[in-house]
Structure formats: structure tokens, C-alpha cells
């Protein structure tokens, strides 16, 4: 579904590339997390998948980015809208402001795509239900909490039925309650097994909980690619400026203190930790 072949990219006037010789294949239905320290290139990768690199930011892109069979460089933003959905951190900036209710806000993308009204109605009802917003349908979007607004942003993009959903740290500006709400929606999405999702995320405990696969970026390069359990428990993580989950840290401390044997698989989720320490 997503194919990157030797992709390098530099922002205009940048001295070093933000993406450096990236190659990766993501099959349909996979929930793929992208982790990496600040400045590692996560946001740039997200922008490249949605076409804003290079069509919005300009700059120099080499190699091929292909999403759902479309060559991004040869396509246009207007064409990519509806094929790739993008959600980013600031919920407030993702609300159009041109619609006065949650329901109308969700409709905005469908209206622009020219979807017939009757179909809009069913799709909106379904997605509001999915995002847990059904009870807020008539509320003004700006009157919602951060977590609700971010779920609205996700719903507004999902309702367009993109082939690929890209989320760039969707909870980094939310409080813990809002973050939990958003992750609950993402977990439901992961459980459907149909959506192809790329999630840039710093909160590794959530990544461990539902990603099918984890990519690690470091200074624009893809430095690791594998299952969450392997990647997140790997001792290399700190080299890339990432902090392991508290479960892994606790387990490692237990090993260092000689309470647990070395060589056991380290836990990355609560369930695995319970097993590890049992």
C-alpha cells in the first residue's frame, strides 16, 4: 500500500537532509508506528506520505514515494486529498472554522469531494459513532475539549475513506484524559485490520499496545524496523534518543539487581510485565 524507494528529502535552504535514503514497504491493513527523537524526521515522513513534501514545502525530493499505487511526486494535493488522510498534533488548527456544528464539520471534506447528500448522511452517522462523537453532533466544534476536537479531526479525515491514514503525534498537545480518548479510537481502528495506518508517536507504551510494526528514525535514516516487542525492548533504543517504556526499564532494573535472569524477553506492555514479574 505504501512503498518508499530510496527516498531522500531536504527542506529548502536546509543544509542536511530531513529524510535520508529511506526504503520501506507497508502492506495494506498494517498499523505501523514511526518513532524517533525530536528532529528525527517523523513529521517530514508523514508530510511525504500525504504529498505536502514536496508539493507544499517544496525542497528537493529524490527516490519514489508511492501510496495506493499513486506516485506522490507526479500527483497533486487536490488529487491526493481523499486518498491519504493526515491528522496532526494541534486539534484547533485542524478544524476548518467554516462549519458551525460537529456534524457539518465532518461533512466538509465530503462536500468538497462532491459526495451525494444521502451517502454523506450515512457515512457521517457511522463515523461519529465510531469516534464516540454521536452525542456531540450538533455542538459547535470550538466548544469541544481538546480530546474531542482531535477525535473530530480524525473522524473528519476518516469519513473521506482514505486508503491510508497518517497521524503525526495526534496526542502531543492533549491532556492525559484527551490522549486516552484518542488512543481508544486508534486502538479500535487498529482492531479493524482494514485500515492502513502510519502513526508517528513518542508515547511508546501506546505504540507497544497496538502497533503491528515499529519503524525507528534517527537523523532522517531508518535505523530499525520490526515488531514492537523486539524494537521497544532493544538496548539500542537509547542510542536513538528514545526512552524505553517503564515496563522495560523496571524489568531491566530487576535483571541488573539479579532478581530476574538475564536473557529473558523484556516486557513492553503492562500484560507482558505482569507475566515477566509473575
Amino acid at each position: 500500500m505504501i512503498r518508499l524507494d530510496r527516498v531522500s528529502y531536504s527542506y529548502p535552504r536546509a543544509t542536511s537532509p530531513a529524510l535520508n535514503d529511506l526504503s520501506v514497504d507497508i502492506p495494506a491493513g498494517q498499523f505501523c508506528a514511526v518513532i524517533g527523537a525530536n528532529g528525527a524526521g517523523k513529521s517530514t515522513l508523514c508530510s511525504a506520505l500525504a504529498g505536502f513534501v514536496p508539493h507544499f514545502y517544496r525542497g528537493r525530493l529524490t527516490g519514489t514515494v508511492e501510496v495506493a499505487g499513486i506516485d506522490i511526486a507526479a500527483s497533486s494535493l487536490a488529487e491526493l486529498a481523499g486518498t491519504v488522510g493526515l491528522v496532526f498534533s494541534n486539534p484547533f488548527n485542524q478544524i476548518t472554522g467554516a462549519r458551525f456544528s460537529v456534524r457539518d464539520e465532518v461533512a466538509f471534506g465530503l462536500e468538497n469531494m462532491g459526495v451525494p447528500r444521502a451517502e454523506m448522511e450515512t457515512r457521517i452517522d457511522y463515523i461519529l459513532q465510531f469516534a464516540g462523537l454521536a452525542g456531540l453532533a450538533e455542538r459547535p466544534p470550538f466548544a469541544l475539549s481538546g480530546g474531542q476536537q482531535q477525535r473530530l479531526a480524525i473522524a473528519s479525515v476518516l469519513v473521506m475513506r482514505p486508503r491510508v491514514l497518517v497521524l503525526d503525534e495526534p496526542t502531543s498537545q492533549l491532556d492525559p484524559v484527551g490522549s486516552r480518548e484518542v488512543f481508544t479510537v486508534l486502538r479500535d481502528l487498529a482492531a479493524t485490520d482494514e485500515a492502513t495506518v502510519v502513526l508517528a508517536e513518542q508515547k511508546l507504551e501506546w505504540v507497544a499496545a497496538f502497533a503491528d510494526r515499529v519503524l525507528v528514525l534517527h537523523e532522517g535514516r531508518l535505523v530499525a524496523d520490526g515488531l514492537p516487542g523486539d524494537i521497544l525492548a532493544s538496548p539500542d533504543l537509547q542510542r536513538y534518543g528514545l526512552e524505553p517504556t517503564r515496563y522495560t526499564r523496571a524489568a531491566r532494573a530487576a535483571q541488573a539487581a539479579g532478581l530476574r535472569p538475564e536473557g529473558d524477553t523484556l516486557p513492553v506492555t503492562l500484560e507482558q510485565a505482569a507475566e515477566f514479574f509473575a
Binding site: 494535493l77 487536490a78 486529498a81 481523499g82 496532526f88 456534524r103 457539518d104 471534506g109 447528500r117 454523506m120
Partner: peptide, 25 residues
């Protein structure tokens, strides 16, 4: 914020050509 707002609008097919519909009647 303007840059982000512009991106968010593009994601919602704002600049797509062709007939648009509307939920309001």
C-alpha cells in the same frame, strides 16, 4: 498556525476542482 491550517484544508479536499455538494439543504 496559518501553515497548519492551510494543510488541514488541503487534506479535506478544499482545493479540489469539480462539483461540490452540501449537507445543508
Amino acid at each position: 498556525d496559518i501553515e497548519e491550517r492551510a494543510i488541514a484544508l488541503e487534506v479535506r479536499a478544499f482545493s479540489r476542482e469539480g462539483a461540490k455538494t452540501s449537507l445543508l439543504v
